[in-house]
Structures are given as structure tokens and as C-alpha cells.
């Protein structure tokens, strides 16, 4: 691995370099319930290179938010990490002590939470909230608060807010402005990885576009990598280099964004893209038949087999593994396993 201290020149495409920043290996997050463990994340693996924008998409209940919280080591009871490794810059986050992980959060991996309206402290001024995070998580020990004020102004300007916002309370801000404050907090210690969990879910389209563009600029400015978690395929297409599709706790396909949309491999990805309403012509969107499975009662074999149009015998017997089926593209589907074997 390259020396993490020497920053390589900003590269905005995944192809430009291969320095792995984050690597997730066979991560499992289970929720303990009276009827047994619910496998919200069941063996997810992926890598993230420097400057890469990865998006994890899935419907509600697919495990995407559980995955994001596990990457921050913020899984709460009854949830627990049941296995796997999360390696950030060469260091596994899962065995770290509470104090060690506190130094990693925000300074190396930071989260832009879902619904910023509820993630800010309503009785604290914006600048104090930003300073709080910086003081708590910086590796260099505790800096004096007054010294950090100019830094707060710089952070606010970087997310497109005027410096007068620093003295305001969250209720004085619009939803888009609160989301910008959340981004300022998340990037205050220049993390290597920015996790964004549905950062625009409650915002209007125009504001959504502004927020995503700001997030993109921040990431490029910091030469950081981004993991965007979301359900909106349109939004993801606008932002990501690489897209991972989750279904029932597993990654079923991961590939460069352009290829996913041009030629989706997994039948679920294909139907998901077909189910998007388009502005190009009327009557071109159809729902995926059936319903998403409940995680406590998953079908035998491939979880998608009851809804899959291409189902065959093997699907209801064997769970397909995520395998590389073409250059840079992986899918967990028996249809492509055979192709892989043939080649």
C-alpha cells in the first residue's frame, strides 16, 4: 500500500489509481430477535479506492443503512456485527476499543446522516456543534475552541453557506441548509472516506441537486472516497462511479455505473431499472412482481428467486455467491456462474 502521508494528486476517476482506502470483507450484521438472528447484512464484501464514488442502492429493508452504520462501528443493540472485517487504510476497525474508534470517526471516516433535520442539536449554535465534533475526534488532542472559529467559517464557506450561519440555531435553517451543516461537520477533519446515508431523502429536487453537487465538490477537494447509500437509482446515476445493488442483506451486483445502466446483469437490477418511471415516453415503467422478502423468513437458495423471471431449478436450492463474471463486474446469480465456468 502506498504511503498514506504523501497525498497523490487529485484524481476524480476510479480508474486513475488503485490505492485501496476501504476494504470490507464478508461483513455480517445480525439483529437478535426472539425468532432467531435477522441477517440484515449477510456477507458483504467490496473495496473502495481513493477518490472513488461508490453507491450502495437497495429498497427499504435491504440492509443498506445497517451496512452504513456498521462501517462507522455504530451498530446498536439488538444489532451486532457477527463477522467480517472493515479495513480502513490498513487497519481493521472492528476490534478497536471505544477510544480508538473515536479517533477514527470524523478524522478518517465520517458520516453524513439521513435526515439532517434530526441529527443536529436543536439547542446548540451551529459553530458550537462543528467545534464539538472537531475537539472530540481530532487525533492531535484537544485544540482550544477560540482557535477553531476561523476554521468553522472556512468549513461553512466550503459547503456554500454564509459565515453568518455559524451563530444560528438549527431551527433557523432550511432543510437544505441543515444538510449543508451536516456536511460541514462530516468534512471538518478531512476524512478519507465520507459515508452519506440518503443525504437528500427529505429534500426537493432542486435542493437535492445542489446538495449532491456540493458533496461531489467536497469529496474532490479532499481527495476522499465516498460511499453513498440510497434507494434512488436516478440520484445514484448522477453521482456514482461504481454501483452496488443490495437485496435482502446481500450485494447481488456491483459494477461501474455506466455498465449497470447499459447492461444490468442480475435480474433484480434489470427489473429495478425497468421499474423507474422515465420522462422519455409514457407507459414504460412496470413494478417488479411480488414483494421483497422478510429477512426472518428468506426463501431457500437465492433470495430473489420467487420474484425472478429467469428462475430455474438451481435457484431455489443453492445461494449464489458474488463472483466476478466480467472485467470489473460481479454478480450473484446462477445465470452468470455458468458463463464464468465456461470462460
Amino acid at each position: 500500500m502506498a504511503d498514506p502521508v504523501t497525498k497523490s494528486p487529485p484524481a476524480h476517476t476510479a480508474e486513475a489509481n488503485n490505492e485501496v482506502v476501504l476494504s470490507v470483507e464478508d461483513l455480517k450484521v445480525y439483529y437478535d430477535t426472539p425468532s432467531g438472528p435477522l441477517k440484515a447484512v449477510d456477507g458483504v464484501s467490496f473495496t473502495l479506492t481513493r477518490g472513488e464514488r461508490l453507491a450502495i442502492v437497495g429498497e427499504s429493508g435491504s440492509g443498506k443503512s445497517t451496512l452504513a452504520t456498521a462501517l462507522m462501528r455504530m451498530t446498536r443493540s439488538p444489532g451486532r456485527v457477527a463477522g467480517g472485517r472493515v479495513i480502513l487504510d490498513g487497519k481493521d476497525l472492528l476490534p478497536l476499543t471505544a477510544e480508538q474508534i473515536r479517533r477514527v470517526r470524523l478524522s478518517e471516516i465520517a458520516l453524513v446522516p439521513q435526515g439532517a433535520m434530526n441529527s443536529l442539536n436543536p439547542v446548540m449554535r451551529v459553530e458550537d456543534q462543528i467545534i464539538d465534533g472537531m475537539v472530540d475526534h481530532s487525533e492531535t488532542g484537544r485544540a482550544a475552541k477560540p482557535e477553531l472559529r476561523p476554521r468553522v467559517h472556512e468549513l461553512l464557506r466550503r459547503v456554500g453557506l454564509s459565515t453568518s450561519v455559524s451563530r444560528m440555531f438549527p431551527h433557523e435553517l432550511s432543510g437544505g441548509m441543515k444538510q449543508r451543516v451536516a456536511m460541514a461537520i462530516a468534512t471538518s477533519l478531512s476524512p478519507k472516506v465520507i459515508l452519506a446515508d440518503e443525504p437528500t431523502s427529505a429534500l426537493d429536487v432542486v435542493v437535492q441537486r445542489q446538495i449532491m453537487q456540493t458533496l461531489g465538490q467536497l469529496q474532490e477537494g479532499l481527495d476522499a472516497s465516498t460511499v453513498l447509500v440510497g434507494h434512488d437509482m436516478g440520484l445514484v446515476a448522477q453521482f456514482a462511479d461504481t454501483i452496488g445493488v443490495m437485496y435482502a442483506g446481500r450485494l447481488v451486483e456491483i459494477a461501474p455505473a455506466r455498465q449497470i445502466f447499459q447492461n444490468p446483469l442480475h435480474p433484480y437490477t434489470r427489473l429495478l431499472i425497468k421499474s423507474l418511471p422515465s420522462l422519455a415516453g409514457k407507459g414504460e415503467f412496470i413494478a417488479i412482481p411480488g414483494l421483497p422478502p422478510t429477512l426472518l423468513d428468506l426463501p431457500q437458495g437465492c433470495s430473489f428467486n420467487p420474484r425472478c423471471p429467469d428462475v430455474f431449478d438451481k435457484c431455489s436450492a443453492v445461494t449464489p455467491q458474488l463472483l466476478e463474471v466480467m472485467q470489473g463486474r460481479s454478480a450473484a446469480c446462477h445465470l452468470f456462474e455458468q458463463k464464468g465456468e465456461d470462460n
Binding site: V205, V206, Q208, R209, M212, Q213, D232, M233, G234, L235, V236, A237, Q238, A240, A257, R258, F261, I273, L276, S278, L279
Partner: peptide, 12 residues
Amino acid sequence: ESIPQPDPDRRW
């Protein structure tokens, strides 16, 4: 124009 189109070739 602000609607995110599900097409990486037609970005904002």
C-alpha cells in the same frame, strides 16, 4: 433539469 435521470451519461 434537476430530476436525477437514471442515466450516467445524462448528468446534471
